[in-house]
Design a protein around this nucleic acid. Structure first.
Length: 476
RNA sequence: GCAUGGGUGGCAGAGUAGCUAUGCAGCGGACUGCAAAUCCGCGGACCUGGGUGCAAAUCCCGGCCUGUGCUCCA
C-alpha cells in the first residue's frame, strides 16, 4: 500500500510523490517562544515527529526543518516589562521547549532556524518582491500587495477577496496605517520606540510575521519542497501569506507540494485557550502523568482531528500506557527480542498498523494494533510461549517504540524491572512470613485476621492477589 | 454573515456501500471466604428528511446542531 496524505490545498488525500525520488523535505512552522510550551505545541510536535518517523521507516531520506519565530510583539512586550533583552525571553522559552520535547521523546528536527539568524535572507526576499512588483514601501513598513496576485487568495481556506473585504468592517482601522489595501500584510515593520531593529534598505525595523517562513524554507529546502506543515490555526493568514510571498518571489507554483495541518486541542469541547481558562502547559500535564503517557494521550486521535483533552482522558491514557510498559518490560526480562516475521498474528498486526499509517498517518489505528499486541503478549506470557513472547516484544519495540515513540529505552525498562525485583527480594522474607501467617488464618477460616494481614501488607505497598496456585504479590 | 471541518453506543474514537472496529465504563459468568487480577460472554450507535442502489453510518440533495477560521495563535 502506498502512502497517501491529505493536502489542505487540494482538499483530498493524495499519494505521496516527492520531488526527488526517495527524499522528503518537510518544513513545519514552529513556535513563537513568548511563554512556556503548552500541550498544543506538544500535540503538533508529536504529530510531526511521528510523520517524520514513519516517512523514514518507509525508506525516505527526510530533511525536517522547524523554525523559531524568536522576535514578535509579545516577546518584545514581555522583555520590556521585565526590562531584559528580548532574546533572553525567547531563549529561555526555547530552552524549555527543547527540555519538554526531549521528555516527550520527540526526535530533534534536522535544523531549527531562527528569525533573528535569517535577517539577510529575509531582506533579500523582500527586495525581490519589491522589484517584482509584489510589494511596496510605505510610511510604516513594507507591505505585500495582494492585488498583485489576487488569484492566489484563499488557496487554503477557500475564502475570496470579496468575502474578507465584506467581513473586514471595523478591523480596517486597526491595521497598518501605511497599507494601500487592508488585506495587504507586512513584510517589514519599521521600528517604533523601544523596539529592537535591524538595518535594511528601507530603514531600521524587523520582519513581519509571515516572511520568515518563506525565507527559511527557501534557505533550507530550496525553491520547491515537498511538505509544509503547521497548526490548522495557521492556515489563514500565515500560510496563505507564505504562498503569496514564496510563489511571487520565486515565480512558480506550487512551491509547496503538500500542505498538512494538525488539529487543535479541545478542553471540554472547546479550543484550549488562555482566555477561557482551560489552558494546560506541558509542565502542567507532566506533573500529573509521565511524559510518555501524555504522548500516548495526544496520539489517540488522528492528527487532523481535534483531540479531546481533560483529566479523564489523561488518566485513561496513563493506564493504557502502563499496561503497555508493564507487558513489554515483563516480556523483555524473560527473553531476547527476536524477529516477529514468523508470527502470523504479528504479521497481520503489522499490516494493519502500516495500512493505518499509510492512510494519512492514522495513529488511532496504529494505537489499536499496539493494544491488541499487548493483549497478545500478556496471553503468551501466561502460556510461557517464549517464541511468541520474544517476537511480540520485538514487534512492540519496532512499532510502539521506534514509530510511535511510546517506549523508553530497553535499558531503562529493564532497570526498572530489576529495581523492582531488588526491592521485592529485599522484603520477600518479611512478606512471605506474613503470607504464611495469612495462610494459617485462612485455613482456619479466620477471615478477619487474614484480611488484617492483607491490609497490613497493603500499607507496606505490597499488593496481594490470590490465584488458584496460591497468593501472588507485587509492589504497588 | 462568509469559509472550512464534524455530527457513530455512557465516554473516547476508527470505519466512505454488503463482513465483530477497538479501548474504557456497564451487565452476566468463570475463578474467589471476600477483594483484586485474569479470562469468557452480553447489551447498546451510526443527527434528521428525502433520493440513488439488490444493498448506505458510508454516495447525492435539503434541514438542524456543532467545532474552527475570518484578529495574535500549534
Amino acid at each position: 500500500m502506498t502512502l497517501r496524505l491529505y493536502d489542505t490545498r487540494s482538499r483530498v488525500k493524495r499519494k505521496l510523490e516527492t520531488l526527488v525520488d526517495g527524499e522528503v523535505g518537510i518544513y513545519v512552522c514552529g513556535i513563537t517562544p513568548y511563554s512556556p510550551s503548552h500541550i498544543g505545541h506538544a500535540r503538533q510536535a508529536i504529530a510531526f515527529d511521528i510523520i517524520v518517523r514513519w516517512l523514514r521507516n518507509s525508506g525516505y531520506k527526510v530533511n525536517h526543518i522547524t523554525n523559531f519565530t524568536d522576535i514578535d510583539d509579545k516577546i518584545i512586550a514581555i522583555a520590556n516589562d521585565e526590562k531584559v533583552h528580548f532574546l533572553e525571553v525567547a531563549n529561555r522559552n526555547i530552552e524549555d521547549y527543547f527540555d519538554v520535547m526531549n521528555l516527550l521523546n520527540v526526535l530533534p528536527a534536522d535544523a531549527y532556524p531562527r528569525v533573528t539568524e535569517t535577517i539577510p535572507e529575509i531582506i533579500s526576499m523582500i527586495s525581490r518582491l519589491i522589484s517584482s512588483g509584489n510589494a511596496y514601501e510605505s510610511s510604516d513598513g513594507v507591505y505585500f500587495e495582494i492585488n498583485s496576485a489576487p488569484e492566489k487568495y484563499g488557496q487554503l481556506t477557500g475564502q475570496t477577496l470579496e468575502m474578507v473585504q465584506e467581513g473586514a468592517g471595523g478591523r480596517v482601522n486597526t491595521t497598518g496605517s501605511g497599507k494601500k489595501n487592508h488585506r495587504d500584510f507586512a513584510l517589514w515593520k519599521f521600528a517604533k520606540e523601544n523596539e529592537p531593529y535591524w538595518d535594511s534598505p528601507w530603514g531600521k525595523g524587523r520582519p513581519g510575521w509571515h516572511i520568515e517562513c518563506s525565507a527559511m524554507s527557501l534557505e533550507y529546502l530550496g525553491e520547491k519542497f515537498d511538505i509544509h506543515g503547521g497548526g490548522s490555526d495557521l492556515m489563514f493568514p500565515h500560510h496563505e501569506a507564505e504562498i503569496f510571498q514564496s510563489e511571487c518571489c520565486l515565480n512558480h507554483e506550487p512551491v509547496v507540494q503538500y500542505w498538512i495541518h494538525n488539529g487543535m486541542i479541545n478542553v471540554d469541547g472547546e479550543k484550549m485557550s488562555k482566555s477561557l481558562g482551560n489552558f494546560w502547559t506541558i509542565r502542567d500535564a507532566i506533573s500529573k502523568v509521565n511524559p510518555l503517557e501524555l504522548r500516548y494521550c495526544l496520539i489517540n486521535a488522528p492528527y487532523r482531528q481535534p483531540v479531546e483533552f481533560n483529566d479523564v482522558m489523561l488518566e485513561d491514557s496513563s493506564s493504557h500506557h502502563q499496561r503497555l510498559i508493564s507487558a513489554y518490560g515483563e516480556g523483555l526480562s524473560l527473553c531476547e527480542k527476536k524477529s516477529w516475521e514468523n508470527s502470523d498474528f504479528l504479521k497481520s498486526a503489522s499490516t494493519n498498523f502500516s495500512n493505518g499509517m499509510n492512510d494519512d498517518f492514522n495513529t488511532r489505528i496504529a494505537v489499536v494494533e499496539v493494544q491488541s499486541v499487548v493483549k497478545y503478549l500478556k496471553e503468551k506470557i501466561d502460556n510461557n510461549d517464549v517464541a511468541e513472547i520474544s517476537a511480540s516484544v520485538s514487534w512492540l519495540s519496532d512499532f510502539a517504540g521506534k514509530i510511535l515513540g511510546l517506549l523508553p529505552d530497553d535499558e531503562f525498562i529493564l532497570n526498572e524491572v530489576n529495581q523492582n525485583n531488588a526491592a521485592m527480594s529485599a522484603i520477600s522474607d518479611l512478606v512471605n512470613d506474613l503470607l504464611n501467617q495469612r495462610k494459617v488464618a485462612r485455613d482456619e477460616k479466620n477471615w478477619d485476621r487474614a484480611d488484617e494481614i492483607r491490609s497490613e501488607l497493603n500499607s507496606m505497598g505490597v499488593i496481594v492477589e490470590d490465584s488458584p496456585s496460591g497468593p501472588i504479590w507485587r509492589l504497588r
